[in-house]
Amino acid sequence: MSTHTITLTVNGREHTEEVEARLTLADLLRERLDLTATHLGCEHGVCGACTVLLDGKPARSCLTLAVQAEGAKIRTLEGLADPEGELHPVQQGFWEKHGMQCGFCTPGIVMSVVELLERDPDPSDDEIAATLGGHLCRCTGYVKIREAVREAVRLRSGSHSPQEIRR
């Protein structure tokens, strides 16, 4: 199995890693960098639990090879807020509106919503549905996830200063 040396930036920190060609980005994040918020629900790109932002776009980290992330900027749930600091508005929205139950699918959904709101601070219901449609949640029936997204929109536009993700 061939190995490659890759350098990538994760939540603002640069990492250089020696990886087998077949190592997935998800396994790199979880097993090498101990960033376990990114969850694996299907490992075939359907459930969306493993979604991270790769150069600003949502990516299924289970279908992305680590070598494909060479030079990329990756953002994961761990990068949204300081461990003791204020929650990111999307996290806060999910907390306020009970947008999660078991919380396993949540990190991927939160990252997709972060991307949506950075692209469009006031998305329509259809846009929200289209973004959430890329994720599976078995607990919530999605009702309170939609409410959480609307709450996040409100929090971002309200008294909160727009929180850009630290890079």
């Binding site: 960033l35 376990t36 918020a37 761990e78 996290q91």
Partner: peptide, 21 residues
């Protein structure tokens, strides 16, 4: 009362610990 969940803070910050973690 519909109190917010205390579980959510660890889950939202990536501090949840599931079996594969």
């Amino acid at each position: 009362r519909g109190l917010r969940r205390r579980e959510d803070l660890r889950l939202l910050r990536g501090d949840g610990r599931f079996i594969d973690d």
